[in-house]
Simulated assay, not measured.
Amino acid sequence: MGETTGPRLRADARRNRERLLAEARAAFLAHGTEASLEEIAACAGVGIGTLYRHFPTRQALLEALLRERFDALAATGRDLLGGRRPPEAALRVWVLALVEMSTTYRGLTAVLVDTLRDDASDLHASCVAMRDAGAALLTAAQRAGAVRSDLAALDVLTLVSAVAWAHERTPDGARERLDRLLDIVFTGLAAPPVTRSS
């Protein structure tokens, strides 16, 4: 009998983790990133102590839910960098993917901005990989002369975060408004035309 206790407990722990992630996903979708952890635990049928054993912080819980999305966004950046699209178009595709990912849960845009500044955060490494992918696309667009050379990746991420914040608060997340805001951003990012002396 003692031989089956360990594996059964491990299976129970896996099921608890899966239930917690499923309930957290639903709670964050319904209530944003500040959803009650106590309610998440209760809906998963476990105590708050069990939640904290699996996810010591809210950031750790978010990281577990978002790691795959961040990794996918970093991979998308690498694919776009080696693809056939013009560099500015590749950057725009990636920026749109970033906005869509950033608005998965209400409040996530602010979490991402704070996380990039906090290297002790559970989400920091994933955010840095994602940021680096965007930075490489920005550099390619700058080298092609399509984007202003005086911009840093943080400048672009700040602008994109503002667009994501606005999009998050748009009723039904109207795509037309998002496209218009991105058009405005990319007009501002564009390199000035080269003037030729007569």
Rank of each mutant, 00 (worst) to 15 (best):
V99K: 02
V99E: 07
V99R: 02
V99G: 04
E100C: 00
E100S: 04
E100M: 03
M101V: 13
M101A: 14
M101C: 11
M101S: 10
M101Y: 09
S102F: 03
S102W: 11
S102P: 03
T103D: 08
T103Q: 01
T103R: 03
T103K: 04
T104S: 11
T104N: 07
Y105N: 02
Y105H: 09
Y105R: 01
R106F: 12
R106D: 14
R106E: 13
G107Y: 09
G107T: 09
G107S: 09
G107C: 11
G107E: 10
G107V: 09
G107L: 10
L108N: 04
L108Q: 13
L108C: 05
A110K: 06
A110R: 14
A110H: 04
V111T: 10
V111I: 09
V111Y: 00
L112Y: 05
L112I: 14
L112R: 06
L112G: 03
L112Q: 11
V113D: 07
V113Y: 00
V113M: 04
V113G: 02
D114R: 13
D114Q: 13
D114F: 02
D114I: 00
D114A: 12
D114V: 03
T115D: 10
T115Y: 02
T115V: 04
T115K: 01
L116S: 05
L116H: 02
L116C: 10
L116I: 09
R117Q: 12
R117D: 15
D118W: 01
D118A: 05
D118T: 10
D118G: 07
D119P: 06
D119R: 15
D119A: 10
D119F: 07
A120W: 08
A120F: 01
A120Q: 13
A120D: 14
S121P: 06
S121T: 09
S121C: 07
S121M: 12
S121W: 05
D122Y: 12
D122F: 11
L123G: 07
L123M: 10
L123E: 04
L123Y: 00
H124E: 11
H124L: 11
A125V: 13
A125D: 12
A125C: 00
A125W: 02
A125G: 11
A125K: 11
S126I: 00
S126T: 03
S126R: 07
S126Y: 02
C127K: 01
C127W: 01
V128P: 02
V128C: 03
A129Q: 14
A129P: 01
A129K: 10
